[in-house]
Amino acid sequence: MAMSENKARSLRGELYYAFTPELLNQRRRCSQAVARYNNSGEISRRKRVELWRDIVDDKTPLPPLAATEEEDEELFAEDAWVEPPVHIDYGTNVELGDNVFVNFNCTIIDTCRVTIGARTLFAPNVSLYSGTHPLDPEVRNGTKGPELGGEIHIEEDCWLGGNVTVLPGVRIGAGVVDVPPYTVVAGNPARKLRDVPRSTNAEKTSGAQAALERDRAAAEK
């Protein structure tokens, strides 16, 4: 099935509408897969990998079952290890490298692509937010307004401590952390950097509203 223009805009980090039937269904699919993962209890490594692949919609076949449980676990030694519970929006925009460890209570808002490089380690309560909202409240408009985002890329061999939050558009790697976009206040104590924009009419000028209308028209044909 062809990707809608609205969905393509979301992946590019442009204004798009999140509460369309298409995207609601995609989040519902992921929510159900995440629930199975989080509620799976004590299961084999094979089953854990299988349930994770359901979340990220990875269709790669599992290797044939080995002769013993220990040998079978070894088949998945390089697969990412994600401790439940985990919280994810779509799953299909998440990519984990080999030998990644994600501790419990990780949140990934994968509006845009989120990649985690090989051998990277997450402590508990790490949050990756690739989605955000317009600063102009007249554009934001609750669930009826458009949203946007920015890709998050965490490179190889990183270690994120407990309660770290990564914002849209950030790349972490080689000792460098980008300054996150959409910053209005910062510091401790917080200080004002700039005013919130008003009356930008971005939902129209960006083309997001027109894209949604074209998608709806195409669906009615």
Results as ranks from 00 to 15, higher is better:
V102F: 01
I172R: 10
G91Q: 02
S31M: 15
A174M: 10
R113F: 07
E71N: 06
V166I: 04
D54G: 13
T107K: 05
V126P: 09
E147M: 14
T165Y: 05
R214W: 04
S44L: 10
A123Y: 04
P168A: 00
A2H: 14
R27Y: 15
D54I: 08
E14M: 10
P84N: 01
N201C: 05
G161W: 00
P124Y: 08
E70G: 04
E22K: 08
S10Q: 15
V179I: 15
I172A: 02
R119E: 06
R214C: 04
P137Y: 05
W52E: 05
L193R: 15
P85L: 02
E70T: 06
E74F: 03
A118H: 14
S130E: 01
K7M: 12
E50D: 12
V126D: 08
S10K: 12
V126R: 13
E14G: 12
N201L: 06
R9G: 04
P137T: 06
L62F: 06
C30H: 06
P124R: 10
V177L: 11
W52D: 06
V114P: 01
V100G: 00
H87W: 04
N125F: 08
A208Q: 04
W159P: 01
V86N: 01
N163H: 07
N141C: 14
D215F: 11
I108W: 03
E71V: 01
T200E: 07
N93V: 01
G161A: 02
P181R: 13
T143H: 11
S31R: 14
K221Y: 14
A218V: 09
A218K: 12
P181Q: 07
V176E: 09
P181N: 08
V184I: 14
N38K: 13
G207W: 07
S206R: 08
R12E: 03
P189A: 07
V139Q: 08
W159G: 00
Q26N: 11
T115K: 11
E14A: 12
E71A: 08
E74I: 05
G187H: 15
R216H: 12
T183H: 15
V94Q: 01
R48A: 10
A67F: 08
S40C: 11
G41V: 05
E83G: 01
R113Y: 04
G173Y: 02
R216W: 13
A35D: 13
T107A: 07
R46V: 03
V82K: 03
T120D: 02
S130L: 00
N125Y: 09
L62Y: 03
